[in-house]
Amino acid sequence: MAVILFQSPKGGTGSTFLAAQLALHLAGKGHEVNALDCTYQNALKMHFGFMPPQQVPELDGAASEPLVAFGVKLLQGHQYTRSPAFLRDAARELDRLFDPGHVWVVDVASEDRQLLELLTPRCALHVCALLPTAASLATLNRLSETAPAMKLDRTVFVLNQLDDRQKLSRHSHSFIRDLFGDQLLATIRRDEAINEALARFEPISKNAPTSAALQDLRFFASAVEERIGLAHALGEANVTVSGDV
């Protein structure tokens, strides 16, 4: 099992978008992926082509019919992770609920510090999305109360909506790259095709297959696989299956 946690100290940086795109790319590469939305907005499903009224099964397993799109199983966890039943024994509940045979991509709201602290020890990677703006970069000191951001060994950064035509965007990129080194896992270029795809409830690969951002997202997914050993694990699984046959 690998839990990949998406949470940023500031909202509006694209964490939900990046979580959905990673889940889609990993499923496309053959991984068994569950995407868990722990935000009140419940917007993760829209990146998989579902309309806002669409009901998503709860994490507690009460729903009988799974919701699957493009090989990704979608789950909603906002209500359950705030319920008394969960909070009474969160550690045991997380061990019970997280299926060890899947990759879990978990989207956590920026203000949900409690869930962040519960999930961080269990995650293989914590992805923090940043924007090349002063407001986004100013929140880096809010990422952890116990250590500076560059000392968080499970945390990586993605600079989203990079626009090299803008001076501040270029300088922000240089600053983040110099500050975090290989903790800066990827940069995603600003591309209007992303908003157009979301407005049409279509994946970017269908709506804009030549999108520059799509190439960046593929690189990001490959970098995540490499960072936490998912590609190696998938290769071993394929060898085992072939051998069994």
Rank of each mutant, 00 (worst) to 15 (best):
M1L: 14
P9D: 05
T16Q: 03
F17K: 01
L22M: 05
H25K: 12
G30R: 10
G30L: 11
V33W: 04
V33K: 03
A35I: 10
A35N: 15
A35G: 14
A35P: 10
Q41F: 09
Q41L: 06
Q41K: 02
K45L: 00
K45N: 00
F48D: 06
L59F: 15
D60C: 00
D60Y: 08
A63W: 02
A63T: 06
E65D: 14
P66Q: 08
P66G: 05
L67V: 08
G71M: 03
V72S: 00
K73Q: 14
K73V: 12
L74S: 02
G77S: 07
H78G: 00
Y80C: 00
Y80E: 01
S83M: 01
F86G: 00
L87F: 03
L87E: 01
D95S: 07
H102W: 12
W104G: 02
W104H: 15
V106R: 00
Q114H: 05
L115I: 02
L115Y: 02
L116P: 00
L119T: 04
P121M: 11
H126L: 04
L130R: 04
L130Y: 06
T133E: 09
A135D: 12
S136C: 01
R142F: 01
S144Y: 09
A147W: 13
P148H: 14
L152M: 11
L152T: 10
V158C: 13
L159E: 04
N160L: 08
D164C: 07
R165Q: 11
R165K: 07
R165V: 03
S169K: 04
H171A: 12
H173E: 13
F175G: 01
F175S: 08
R177T: 14
L179V: 12
L179Y: 15
G181D: 04
G181L: 04
A186K: 13
A186I: 13
E192N: 11
A197D: 00
E202C: 01
P203I: 06
A208K: 10
Q215I: 14
D216L: 11
L217G: 04
R218W: 10
F220V: 07
S222D: 11
E225C: 04
E226V: 03
E226Y: 08
R227A: 11
R227W: 11
R227T: 13
G229V: 13
H232M: 09
H232T: 15
E236K: 14
N238F: 09
V241D: 02
G243L: 10
D244Y: 09
